[in-house]
Amino acid sequence: MIVFVRFNSSHGFPVEVDSDTSIFQLKEVVAKRQGVPADQLRVIFAGKELRNDWTVQNCDLDQQSIVHIVQRPWRKGQEMNATGGDDPRNAAGGCEREPQSLTRVDLSSSVLPGDSVGLAVILHTDSRKDSPPAGSPAGRSIYNSFYVYCKGPCQRVQPGKLRVQCSTCRQATLTLTQGPSCWDDVLIPNRMSGECQSPHCPGTSAEFFFKCGAHPTSDKETSVALHLIATNSRNITCITCTDVRSPVLVFQCNSRHVICLDCFHLYCVTRLNDRQFVHDPQLGYSLPCVAGCPNSLIKELHHFRILGEEQYNRYQQYGAEECVLQMGGVLCPRPGCGAGLLPEPDQRKVTCEGGNGLGCGFAFCRECKEAYHEGECSAVFEASGTTTQAYRVDERAAEQARWEAASKETIKKTTKPCPRCHVPVEKNGGCMHMKCPQPQCRLEWCWNCGCEWNRVCMGDHWFDV
Results as ranks from 00 to 15, higher is better:
V157Y: 07
G135N: 12
S193G: 08
I306E: 01
V117H: 15
L266P: 03
Q40P: 03
R275C: 02
L123C: 13
V157M: 12
Q171F: 05
V70H: 03
F362P: 03
L266W: 05
C212W: 00
Q25H: 07
A134P: 11
S384N: 09
Y312C: 04
V324E: 04
K76Q: 14
Q311R: 03
N428E: 15
C337A: 03
Q317G: 10
L341H: 11
T173P: 11
V56F: 05
E49G: 00
I188E: 10
L287K: 01
I411V: 10
C201D: 00
D394F: 04
Y372G: 04
D87G: 10
P417S: 11
L50R: 01
N273R: 03
W183D: 00
A363G: 08
T103G: 12
F362Y: 10
V3I: 15
C212I: 01
E382A: 13
V393M: 08
A206L: 03
A291T: 05
F4I: 07
V258H: 02
G139T: 13
F463K: 00
G203F: 01
E367V: 11
K129W: 08
P294C: 07
L226W: 00
Q440L: 11
L261K: 02
I69R: 01
T103M: 09
K416L: 07
R128Y: 13
A339D: 05
Y147A: 02
E426T: 14
G35C: 08
D86R: 10
Q347P: 05
Q171N: 14
W183C: 01
I239F: 05
I239Q: 02
C332H: 03
P343E: 05
R170T: 06
P417T: 09
F7L: 03
C166D: 00
N8G: 04
H68C: 04
I66A: 05
P199W: 05
C238Y: 01
F304V: 01
V56T: 03
G118L: 03
T386C: 13
L187P: 01
V17R: 00
R104D: 13
R256K: 14
Y318I: 09
R163E: 15
C289L: 02
L119V: 11
C352K: 02
N235T: 04
Q438I: 03
G135L: 12
R6C: 05
Q326E: 13
C436F: 00
T388C: 09
C451T: 15
C337K: 03
I23A: 02
C201N: 01
